[in-house]
Every structure is written in structure tokens, then in C-alpha cells.
């Protein structure tokens, strides 16, 4: 492939992925409002467009045109940098996530992925661990007790659960023997006894998946682990002092992180884009991407479902759960997987 064509393909892929991701973020917010509304016997957004479908656009316009207040007592450089850090690192990790096999256009094979790094999984973990600074610095630079408490809670929580998150992934790594997300998905092709798919969750990694899901919920600060922004005690936590687009950036970062977590869960435990293929060649090319998107939708729905169902933990319960239950469980899963593979 000539270099200019490679650059063109990369630019097009990046643009498409970014637009799709931002649209998905906007419509996840819509989905959450709609689904939680129905769970609570309300309608959710209905006024803007059919079924309230244009609500994200209305929200976006509102955020852009609202007055952008900067309180006088904040530490300005970090106050402005914090939402940028949060949103940039939340959007970065999508770059290494593969959506499907390579497609062939005019004889050139183009992988459905912005960039294929052979340490893709580690890169995502690194990027998410840097994303903590957005929340922590927002809490500190706002110079507000609620913000500071929210920021402290968020950083303590994320550091604690990152260990379980990492350990729950090691089981999958042992089984696939590669850090590349594409290799991990390809290792999950095929079926057991002809009908059960060879996904890692059916391949002895159920406990690993459970640990990953719990830790991921805590990492993304979602209910039941949303203590950094517990409105009953902290007003709005780390983003109390933010308004207009800066607030929207934190919102976007949170939902983009949810999507990244759902992508990782799909790739590592649910076979990525593997699924039944049938029909004419054009359908066979589209179906893997469809299966991938469908699985991600399932995880996002689960997020919203949990939010509509569970109350919030107390902070000591959160820490006890993370250190005394989840960490030993993920360690045991790691040891059991290692023994099973070595057998």
C-alpha cells in the first residue's frame, strides 16, 4: 500500500470512528434518560423530535451557548486543563479497539481499527490510568470542599479498583498469550460441541468476567459506585464548580469511558465481532461489525439497568468490597487459570 493511501485511510478511519463514538456518547445519554424514565414509570425525553430523539442535539446547543462561569477562587490553569484531560484520554482509547476483520477495497486490505498496536490492551490500561488526573485535578483546582472530597474519593476508588481490573484481565491474557486485542478476539473463534461459542466467558473465565465488570463499574464512577459525585452528600462532587461546555466535557468523558469498558468486555470475554455469518458477501462483511455493536449495546443497557436498580454503596463498603472481596477473588481466578493452562 503506498504511503499516501495509508495516511488517507488512517485519516478517514479516525474521523469515522470519532464521529461514531461521539454520536454513540450522545445517544447513550438519551438511552439512559429514556430507559431509566420507563423504569421509574416516567416517559423520559419526549418533546424534542420523535421519541425525544433530537434531545442530544438540543442538549449540545444548550451547553455551547450557556454562560461559562469561572469562579474567582479557582486555580485557573488546572481548572481549565482538568476537563480537557478527562475528555482527551477518554476518547483516545478507542483508537486501538478493533471493530471487525480486515475488509478489502480495490485490492487493498484495510483492518477495521484505527491502529493495530501489539500492546493494545496495555495501552488502554495506561490511557485510563492517566484519565484519573482529570477528575482528581478538577476536584483540587476548584477550591471547594465538595469538589475536593469528590476528587479524593474518585482517585482513591480508581487506584483501588485498578488492581482488581488489571488482575481480572490477566486470566484472559494467559489463555490467549498476546496483548493484541485482535489476537485475543481471534483466539475466541469456533465453537464447543458445535453450538456453544468459544468465548472466554464460556471458557472458564466467568469469575474473571465478574471481577472485570465490578471493577469497571467502579472505574467509570457509575452507580452503585458513584460516590465521587454522590449528590446527597457532595452536591455534584468533582464537577460542582463547572458549567456549560466544561461540565459537558466531564459528562462526555464518563460516557466515552463506559463505551470503552463495554468494548473491552466484548473483546476480551464475549468474542468481539465473532457471531453467526450468513447471506450474500456484502451482508457477511457487515455482520461482524453488527455483532460487535449489538454486544456493546447489551453492556450499555446493563449499565443503565443497574443504575435503575441498585442504590449507592457507603464509602467503607466500597473499599471493603474492593480490597477484601474483589482483589482475593481475582487473584484466585488468576492462579486457577494459570494452573489450568499449565496442566
Amino acid at each position: 500500500m503506498p504511503i499516501w493511501l495509508y495516511i488517507l485511510a488512517s485519516v478517514i478511519k479516525s474521523a469515522v470512528v470519532l464521529v461514531v463514538l461521539l454520536t454513540a456518547v450522545a445517544y447513550t445519554v438519551w438511552l439512559e434518560r429514556k430507559v431509566v424514565g420507563h423504569m421509574q414509570n416516567r416517559w423520559g425525553p419526549t418533546r424534542v423530535g420523535p421519541f425525544g430523539l433530537l434531545q442530544p442535539a438540543a442538549d449540545g446547543i444548550k451547553f455551547l451557548f450557556k454562560e461559562d462561569l469561572t469562579p474567582p477562587h479557582v486555580y485557573k490553569p488546572l481548572y481549565i486543563a482538568a476537563p480537557l484531560i478527562a475528555v482527551i484520554f477518554a476518547l483516545t482509547s478507542i483508537a486501538v479497539i478493533p471493530f471487525g476483520n480486515a475488509i478489502t477495497i480495490y485490492g487493498y486490505s484495510i483492518p477495521l481499527q484505527v491502529t493495530d498496536v501489539n500492546t493494545g490492551l496495555l495501552l488502554i490500561l495506561g490511557v485510563t490510568s492517566i484519565g484519573v488526573y482529570g477528575v482528581a485535578l478538577a476536584g483540587w483546582s476548584s477550591n471547594n470542599k465538595y469538589s475536593l472530597l469528590g476528587g479524593l474519593r474518585a482517585s482513591a476508588q480508581m487506584v483501588s479498583y485498578e488492581i482488581s481490573l488489571g488482575l481480572s484481565l490477566v486470566g484472559v491474557l494467559i489463555m490467549s498469550g498476546s496483548f493484541s486485542l485482535r489476537d485475543i478476539v481471534n483466539a475466541q473463534g469456533g465453537h464447543f460441541w458445535g453450538f456453544i461459542p468459544r468465548w472466554n466467558i464460556f471458557h472458564g473465565q466467568f469469575i474473571g468476567f465478574f471481577c472485570y465488570l465490578m471493577a469497571a463499574y467502579a472505574e467509570t464512577n457509575r452507580i452503585p459506585f458513584d460516590l465521587p459525585e454522590a449528590e446527597t452528600e457532595l452536591v455534584a462532587g468533582y464537577h460542582t464548580e463547572y458549567s456549560a461546555m466544561k461540565f459537558a466535557m466531564f459528562f462526555m468523558a464518563e460516557y466515552a469511558n463506559m463505551i470503552t469498558v463495554a468494548c473491552l468486555a466484548t473483546l476480551l470475554f464475549f468474542g468481539g465481532w465473532n457471531g453467526p455469518l450468513f447471506g450474500p458477501p456484502i451482508l457477511q462483511a457487515i455482520l461482524p461489525v453488527f455483532w460487535f455493536a449489538a454486544k456493546i449495546f447489551g453492556f450499555l443497557f446493563l449499565y443503565i439497568w443497574v443504575r435503575g436498580t441498585l442504590p449507592r454503596f457507603r464509602y467503607d463498603q466500597l473499599m471493603a468490597f474492593g480490597w477484601k472481596f474483589l482483589l482475593p477473588l481475582s487473584l484466585m481466578n488468576l492462579i486457577a487459570t494459570a494452573i489450568a493452562v499449565a496442566w
Binding site: 495506561g126 490510568s129 492517566i130 484519573v132 479524593l152 482517585s155 482513591a156 480508581m158 487506584v159 485498578e162
Partner: peptide, 9 residues
């Protein structure tokens, strides 16, 4: 990620 978060914390 981890060590510097503790510093900032």
C-alpha cells in the same frame, strides 16, 4: 498512572 496519582492524592 498509579504512583503519581498517590503523589497528587
Amino acid at each position: 498512572g498509579a504512583i503519581m496519582v498517590l503523589f497528587v492524592f
